[in-house]
């Protein structure tokens, strides 16, 4: 499987570290116990299209949001989780 890293180009998954579903958003801290529980523990775990976090640990060290199909493993797209700062442009 290969991931089209927006910064480095198409690379083997051996260069990346997987984290998981990119859709849960970390809630702001205090008084958010239920929301934090859902963020940390509950997953849709879909069969099909999945937006997920991958870290290009042996490349540019960017965190990516990769769209991948969990049944076919096809990867239609990938983007940087955080846009590059001005002046960091490739």
């Amino acid at each position: 499987m290969r991931i089209p890293c927006p910064y480095c180009g198409s690379r083997d998954i051996g260069e990346f570290v997987y984290r998981g579903d990119a859709s849960p958003v970390r809630p702001a801290a205090d008084g958010a116990e239920a929301a934090m529980f859902a963020y940390v523990y509950l997953r849709d775990n879909p069969m099909g299209r999945h937006e997920e976090h991958w870290y290009h640990t042996q490349g540019c060290r960017n965190w990516l949001v990769v769209t991948r199909d969990t049944l076919t493993h096809e990867i239609p797209s990938a983007r940087l989780a955080a846009p590059l700062n001005a002046g960091d442009a490739v």
Binding site: D21, N45, E52, L71, T72
Partner: peptide, 13 residues
């Protein structure tokens, strides 16, 4: 293999 999958197969790494 380390990534979410329902494919009953894995990859070379």
């Amino acid at each position: 293999d380390g990534y979410n999958s329902y494919a009953q197969r894995g990859n070379m790494p």
